[in-house]
Design a protein around this nucleic acid. Structure first.
Length: 649
DNA sequence: TTTCGACGTCTTTTT
DNA sequence: GACGTCGAAA
């Protein structure tokens, strides 16, 4: 039996024990937030609350996973607690009740697909014929998404985020509406739709809302500062009857503004749930005071914050964090590799060391160096393997089998064939989608008799028919399609060898699924984390690898030793945030998040020579470091090659 | 209508 | 430095 009083400090205990009624927890970095959630779940279970009546929601998959697994480590019953990301929760509800909003079934569009679809709508109304400068599909999708997630009109979004494009507002508004119609027509849901449809369902169908509200008696939302308006609305609709809602967040760690997240949600929570308790967790259990001093110095430079000061709870002593100056990224990588080994020699396991960066590309020299030295590493963030062309190619074949009306998938697999471009694909697609039931022979009949692609079309139709035959395991379907796709892959990519491995890995994952639809939905909402790129040598040594991660993906995690790289103007803060004060503030918070991941060792690395492509520009040290308050709390050292004093930093 | 090469743009974070 | 887009040739 666990003794809470020994495990928790008074404020933590207060949170854990306040199981009834609304609570807002402001939890500073490293303040034992996950631990509190964990114990709160246990406490509820001890009070004989059914674990299925507890709902844990969060914004990112990684946070969701760690939350659920930590809770179940003490008490097996906690495994039955429901939860996940808002998106996956929404999907599970919508899947059950799709008919209530007028759909039999639906397919989920990932970000790429949605952009494609938006692009299609934009092209249809001919915006690019008149004006080449019209925003491109990815920008359009971003604008539309922002308007939905912030619940603001296109005009408002344009004014704020893209003043240069303001005059296009009404056209974009039209594209937004067309896109909406297009999705309905094709039974497509994009990520935003999952939230919106759930919200609509909860608003319009009081019976369902009551049912869910009664089912989920206790609701907890983690990383509340990263939720957007629809997510806040969902939380409210589910919780307003019993008001047993706890949200946990830290306004200083809000780093998803670009997705429409707003820390206003934290400020507004007490208004939505009057009488809510507000509890601050400030004691830090993660880092020693010298690291916290730097974090506090960074924090004090930030505006619009709940005042906060991290205080080290345990009596930990440690070294001042070091600021290291290097000539270029290669020197830096070399030093890092050596240091990682050195610490490993002192007993800090590889998996307790992490290198964090703003953007994935700054880690490439390091990846090369680690590879060369045979240090195992794993990369998080950046281009995911499930977003790579070959994986999407193959999955698209599965998609058309699951849903023959999926014209985006059709277009993708048809244009893979020699001699078929967008136009031909479109004409074939429209033939196919007019029939309800899919018949692979459709591909053979059209006007394209005798065309050079006739043979490849036949091959495709055979492969699909074969794979799609009734009662096949997904694993076997996948294997058949791989056979079909293999020659195309070899033709299309130079590095097909590596890509085959990805597909093999994915094939293994499909073994776990019995329903194709579930596999595809999971693939979009909850894609396999496994495929994150591992270095070749990770298999030889059995030791768990060093973590290379974007700061965004590192949120909520901690390591003994953290190296931050790319701390220069243009990378952190990233160049395109510079003309917007809020953008810079978000970068500032990002830096704060990065610093507070470290427990014992913290190294900040800066290199002087620019990454090459803008000519002869030299890096400037990040403005977030270059203040007397921050610098005075760092130990400055030259890195490799005796980097001299007379630098321009 | 497709494909390939030149040119210009942007460089990001996640569901 | 890579990627996407546009224009011209096949």
């Amino acid at each position: 039996m666990l003794n809470l009083k020994n495990e928790l400090n008074p404020s933590q205990l207060e949170v854990v024990n306040a199981t009834e009624g609304p609570i807002l927890v402001i939890a500073g970095a490293g303040s034992g937030k996950t631990r509190v959630i964990e114990y709160r779940v246990l406490t509820l279970i001890q009070k004989k609350i059914s674990p299925q009546a507890i709902l844990l929601l969060t914004f990112t998959r990684r946070a969701a996973n760690s939350m659920l697994s930590r809770a179940s480590s003490h008490e097996p019953k906690a495994k039955l607690v429901e939860g996940g990301t808002f998106h996956s929760f929404a999907y599970s509800i919508l899947k059950k009740h799709s008919s209530l909003i007028g759909f039999d079934t639906f397919s989920i569009l990932d970000e790429d697909d949605s952009q494609e679809a938006v692009g299609l709508c934009a092209k249809k109304i001919g915006v690019y014929d008149l004006d080449k400068k019209f925003p491109k599909k990815d920008t359009l999708k971003k604008i539309i998404s922002m308007s939905i997630n912030k619940e603001k009109s296109i005009e408002e979004v344009m004014e704020k985020e893209y003043p240069g494009f303001f005059d296009y507002s009404s056209l974009i508004e039209k594209i937004k509406n067309d896109y909406q119609r297009y999705k309905i027509e094709k039974s497509y849901f994009d990520f935003d739709d999952l939230l919106i449809y759930l919200k609509v369902l909860l608003t319009k169908r009081e019976d369902l809302r009551l049912e869910l509200s009664r089912k989920y008696q206790y609701i907890m939302v983690d990383e509340y500062q990263d939720t957007n308006k629809p997510q806040a609305a969902i939380t409210y609709l589910l919780g307003k009857d019993h008001t047993n809602v706890m949200v946990v967040g830290d306004d200083a760690q809000s780093i998803y503004g670009f997705r429409g997240a707003t820390h206003e949600n934290i400020m507004e929570f007490p208004k939505l749930f009057p009488g809510c308790k507000m509890i601050k967790l400030e004691a830090n259990y993660r880092s020693h005071q010298k690291i916290l001093d730097v974090a506090n110095a960074v924090l004090s430079d930030m505006k619009n914050k709940f005042p906060k000061n991290l205080v080290c709870a345990k009596d930990l002593s440690g070294e001042k964090p070091e600021l290291l100056l290097f000539r270029n990224g290669y020197d830096e990588a070399e030093w890092l590799a050596a240091k990682i080994r050195e610490l490993r020699g002192e007993g800090v396991l590889f998996c307790h060391q992490a290198v964090l960066f703003r953007s994935a590309y700054v880690s490439i020299p390091l990846q090369i160096e680690l590879e060369k030295q045979g240090i195992p590493f794993e990369v998080f963030g950046g281009l995911k393997f499930y977003e790579t062309a070959h994986v999407k190619d193959l999955v698209s074949h599965l998609k058309v089998i699951a849903n023959p009306k999926d014209e985006l998938a059709w277009a993708r697999i048809l244009t893979l064939l020699d001699g078929i471009g967008p136009k031909t694909a479109q004409s074939i697609v429209s033939k196919i989608t007019h029939t309800q039931k899919f018949d692979a022979r459709m591909l053979n009949s059209p006007e394209g008799q005798g065309k050079k692609y006739e043979r490849s079309l036949r091959k495709l139709s055979d492969a699909l028919e074969n794979a799609g035959a009734a009662e096949k395991k997904i694993y076997d379907m996948f294997a058949l399609l791989m056979d079909y796709y293999y020659p195309i892959l070899k033709e299309k990519f130079d590095d097909w060898q590596q890509r085959i491995n990805d597909l093999e890995a994915l094939k293994d994952i499909t073994g776990k699924y019995s329903s194709l639809r579930d596999f595809l939905a999971d693939f979009a909402i909850d894609p396999p984390e496994k495929g994150s790129r591992k270095s070749e040598n990770s298999s030889t040594e059995e030791e768990k690898p060093v973590c290379l991660s974007t700061i965004h993906s590192a949120k909520g995690l901690e390591w003994e030793c953290v190296y931050l790289i790319g701390l220069v103007e243009g990378v952190l803060p990233v160049s395109f945030s510079l003309d917007d004060e809020e953008g810079i503030e978000e970068e500032h918070r990002l830096f704060y998040v990065a610093l507070t991941r470290a427990k014992k060792h913290l190294y900040l690395a800066v290199h002087y020579e620019n990454h090459g492509f803008s000519y002869n520009q030299f890096n400037q040290i990040s403005r977030f470091i270059d203040t007397p308050e921050v610098l005075s709390r760092l130990e400055q050292k030259a890195g490799l090659n005796q980097y001299e004093e007379n630098n321009t930093f």
